[in-house]
Design a protein around this nucleic acid. Structure first.
Lengths: 193, 193
DNA sequence: CGTTTGTAAATCAACGTTCATTTACTAACG
DNA sequence: CGTTAGTAAATGAACGTTGATTTACAAACG
């Protein structure tokens, strides 16, 4: 009954993520995203209502993406802790593309002054911690963690180490990411069985 | 032979820091800073050459500020580790004003795509780690840390935990900061004597 | 043919920057 | 000591640019 879309919303958000990864938050302009997505700026407005709307969609996508990443991680490995370590190793070895890096650090680019963006960032952080806690809970149930370990608590610690290491990595620029792996090892070791 | 300045450079940078803390990076406009400093936008250009120049000065100020904070911290306490814990406790208890918080997270607001800003952020991170390493080295020499502890390595770990906790704090919005203190305690405990 | 998608051109607002001018002070001079 | 010339500091009014949004229209599909 109508003309089919030439470019999916998801593709547009991907283009936006690529732009923010390459040109930084200041370079995230409608024109740049439109060019990357091979569309006109006006089309982006029509599809997402406003630039803010597009950014909100981008922020919300981040949450789903971390969830998917956990899903993938868990599927590939038998033991929960092995999965966590494998994910860290993959991240540290540069398997992640810069765009994905930017996605992880995406909430840094957002204006935390804006309540809606802040809510998105908080939701994503909460989601990540919940996923981590579930993973660590499984690990505890499987006897991979010392008895009496509080999964929620350890999840927060892991999240802090992860965010901190990623942040330092981004600031100091590259390297092979060995320190990131080292930090997570250090955090988990005391609780391993 | 000249008219004296009504507002010091330092005061202007303070105003800029306050603005970025209150209105976010997007709200950091020359007009806003000028209003906060009770000057005209044109004056800021004349003093700092450009908006970018002002932001660079702001970024460089951050480095000196962390150094000064370490100086203050060290002066007040006899034992190095006690100083570190006191600083953490003070930070966690909300002694820090939002502006100082914003100053700490200031490099997050910068465009890491810009080489000069990135250099500033890296320098500040390096400075912080060096100061931490010196403090922890003193602690080791004083017998407060287990023998064989690598001060440089532990400094990085502390920095990662600090940044990660601060970041999470900023995203999740407030709270009493107890988790930050808990994280640092957790990081240091294994190495205490 | 009606509806939806996409676009190009026009519009509007905001921001950084420039420039001519005024202000407020200092220092030398008579 | 009073005056005045000289100068850095500060300003306010434009300007040009940029970027988001609106509108009017063309094209593609069912």
């Amino acid at each position: 009954m109508a003309r089919p879309r030439t470019t999916s919303d998801e593709a547009i958000l991907g283009a936006a993520a690529r732009v923010v990864g390459r040109r930084g938050p200041a370079g995230l302009t409608l024109a740049a995203v439109a060019e990357e997505a091979r569309l006109a700026p006006a089309t982006l407005i029509q599809r997402f209502g406003s630039k803010r709307g597009l950014l909100l969609s981008l922020a919300r996508r981040g949450e789903a993406e971390t969830a998917a990443a956990f899903e993938r991680t868990r599927a590939g490995h038998g033991s929960p802790l092995a999965a966590l370590h494998a994910a860290t190793a993959a991240l540290a070895s540069g398997v992640r593309t810069p765009e994905e890096m930017a996605g992880n650090l995406g909430f840094l680019q957002l204006d935390l002054t804006d309540p809606e963006f802040r809510a998105c960032a908080a939701a994503q952080a909460a989601r990540m911690r919940a996923e981590l806690a579930a993973l660590l809970g499984e690990a505890a149930a499987a006897g991979e963690l010392a008895p009496g370990t509080d999964a929620e608590d350890l999840a927060r610690t892991v999240q802090v180490a992860y965010n901190g290491a990623l942040l330092l990595w981004a600031v100091e620029g590259g390297g092979d990411g060995a320190p990131l792996r080292a930090e997570l090892d250090r955090v988990l070791r005391p609780h391993r069985t």
